[in-house]
Design a protein around this nucleic acid. Sequence first.
DNA 1: CTTGTTTCGAAACAATGTGTTCGGTTATAA
DNA 2: TTATAACCGAACACATTGTTTCGAAACAAG
Lengths: 212, 212
Amino acid sequence: MVNKQIRRAVPYWTGMGKVFGNSRRESSDRRVRRTRKAVQQALVELILEKGYEAVTVTDLINRADVGRSTFYAHFTDKQDVLFSNLDELSGLLRLAPASTPGTLFAFSLPMFEHLQEQRRLARALLGRRGGSAVMARGEQILATVVRDELLAAFPTRSTAPDSLDLMVTCVVGAFMALLRTWVDGEVTATPTEMDAAFRAVVTPGVETALRR
Amino acid sequence: MVNKQIRRAVPYWTGMGKVFGNSRRESSDRRVRRTRKAVQQALVELILEKGYEAVTVTDLINRADVGRSTFYAHFTDKQDVLFSNLDELSGLLRLAPASTPGTLFAFSLPMFEHLQEQRRLARALLGRRGGSAVMARGEQILATVVRDELLAAFPTRSTAPDSLDLMVTCVVGAFMALLRTWVDGEVTATPTEMDAAFRAVVTPGVETALRR
DNA sequence: CTTGTTTCGAAACAATGTGTTCGGTTATAA
DNA sequence: TTATAACCGAACACATTGTTTCGAAACAAG
C-alpha cells in the first residue's frame, strides 16, 4: 500500500493505460484473456448480489478462482475492474449525435432502449448499488454531448457561456435522475415513456431560453 | 465488526434513536456535549481536507482528541456522525412550503441563499467530497416537497400518478445537480442566478405539462 | 518434442482500519 | 462531598489491502 503509483505489483507486466475509457486491446495469450474475463464477470455477479461497495478484492479472487498475485498483475484496484467493464456502455452515450437535426436530446430514447435490453448489467453498474464512480463518469460524457448539441442547435445565439453551462447541468441532472430511478426498478415504464417524460419537462424551458 | 447491529459498544449508554432526522435531545452532562460536538466538528474539518470517504474513525478520534471507546460509546459509525450533523440542513428544505402560491418551486432561492451563508458546512456535507448519503437523503426530502407543491398548484388535474413521479424526479434531479456543482465551487454565480437558471429550464415544461 | 518465456497459484507479509473489552481515572450532577 | 456516569488508553481479534517469493504450469517457437 506504500507505492501504489510508482511500483507495479508485477514488474514483468507490460504497460497498459489506466485512463478511463481505454479499451484495452485483448491480449494474445489465452491465459490472460481467461483471467481478465473471469475477474470482470465475477465483479458483475458480486455487484448484483452485494452491491459495489461491499465487494472486496478477496471476494473477487475467490469467485473468479484466481490467485491474489494474479489479480494484482492485471488490475490495480476494484475500481480498475469496474472501469474495464465500462467500455460497452460508454459507446452508448456517443451515438445519435445529431441524427435528426430538428430534435433536441436525441440520445435520450436510444439510451433508455438499450439500457432495457442490458438491464442486468445496467442495474449492476448504474443503480444505487453500483457505486457512484460510473454515474459520475456518465455525467461527464453526457454533459459534453448535451453542450455540443445545444451549441449546434442554436449556433451563435449563445447567452453568457456560464449560463449555458448551468442549463447543461440542469438537463444532465434531470436525465441522470430519471435514469437512476428507472434502472433501480422503482419505476415500471417503457423507454418511450421515460423519454417523453424527460423531454416534456426539459425541452420547453431550454427552447424558450435559447430562443431568447 | 461482528455484531454491529445487535451488540452495543457500551451497554450503559441509554438508548438514542438512530433514525435519520432524529434531533437527539442534548445531554445534560457537559462532558457528553463536549465529546459529541468535538467529534462532529472534527468530521467537518476532515471532510474539507480529505473528503468523506477518506476519513477514518482513527482520524476522527485523533482530531477530536477522544478515546476510541468513547467514540463508539456515542456513535456506531462514521456515517452516524455524518447524519448527526445533518439536522441543521434538513430544516432548510421544509421552509417556504407554499409562501407565494403563484410561484412554483419557492424553495429554490432561499435554499441557494442559505447555502451561501453556510458555505463551508454545505460544501463539506453536500459536495462531491461529502459522500453520497447526504445527497440521497436530500433528494428524498426534496422530492416530497416538490410533489406536494405540484399537487397543490394543479389540484385535481393529475395526469397519471406515475407520470407525475417522473416529473418530480426530473425536477429534483435538475435542482440537485445545480446545487452540487454550485457547492463544489465549479460555478461562481449568485443565488439569484442559480435560482433563475433552475426555474428557466424547469418551469415552462412543468407548467405546460400540467396545464395539459 | 524440446526449450525459453510468460503467466499462474499459494502462502506469507506488513500495514492499516474496525469494533470491542477492560481496568482504572476524572469530571459531573445531585 | 460523594456516588456515578463518562472518559481514557491500551490491547484485542479480525478483516482488507497490496506486495513479495518461488515453484508449477501453460504457452509459443523452433
